[in-house]
Simulated assay, not measured.
Amino acid sequence: MSAQVRLVEVTDVNRAAVAALRVHPAQERFVASVEKSFQDARDNPDANPWFRAVHDGDEPVGFVMLSWDVVPGPELRGPYFLWRLLVGADHQGRGYGAAVLDEVVALLRAEGATELLTSCVPGEGSPEPFYRRYGFVPTGETDEDGEIILRLDLGSRP
Rank of each mutant, 00 (worst) to 15 (best):
V13T: 15
H24T: 08
E9F: 08
D12P: 07
V13R: 10
Q27M: 01
S37V: 05
R6Q: 15
A99Q: 11
A113I: 12
R109G: 02
T142F: 12
Q27G: 00
D153S: 09
P25N: 10
A16T: 14
G97W: 09
P72W: 05
L66K: 00
H24Y: 13
G97S: 07
Y131C: 11
R109A: 12
S119A: 15
P25E: 15
L154G: 01
D43S: 11
T11P: 06
R94Q: 13
V23S: 00
D69N: 13
L101S: 02
L101H: 01
L82N: 11
G146A: 06
E28L: 04
S33M: 06
G73H: 02
R6K: 11
L85E: 05
N48L: 04
R132C: 10
D46M: 03
P79W: 01
D102R: 14
T139Q: 02
F38H: 04
L66N: 03
G93R: 09
R77S: 14
L108A: 07
R22S: 06
L7K: 01
R6W: 09
W50C: 06
P49V: 00
P60G: 10
A89L: 03
T114P: 06
V64F: 05
G73V: 04
R15Q: 12
P72G: 13
S2W: 07
P138F: 00
P49H: 01
V10C: 06
V64Q: 05
E147S: 12
P122E: 15
D43C: 04
F63A: 10
Y96Q: 01
E144W: 11
L150F: 06
V61W: 04
I148Q: 15
A110D: 12
E35L: 13
G140L: 06
R132G: 11
G135F: 03
V10G: 02
A16R: 14
V71L: 14
D90E: 15
L76Q: 10
N14W: 02
R133V: 13
D102G: 08
F38V: 12
L21P: 00
S126V: 01
F130K: 08
L116F: 08
A41V: 03
L152Q: 01
E35R: 10
L107Y: 08
P129L: 11
G155Y: 03
G112W: 06
W68E: 12
A19C: 14
A26C: 10
Q92H: 02
I149N: 06
F81I: 04
A17E: 15
F30I: 13
A113M: 11
W83K: 11
D145M: 07
R77L: 15
G62Y: 00
R151H: 04
E111V: 09
W50Y: 12
S67D: 13
R52L: 08
L85H: 09
A47K: 09
N14A: 07
V100I: 10
N14S: 05
G135K: 07
A106C: 08
S67N: 13
G146S: 04
S2R: 14
E141G: 00
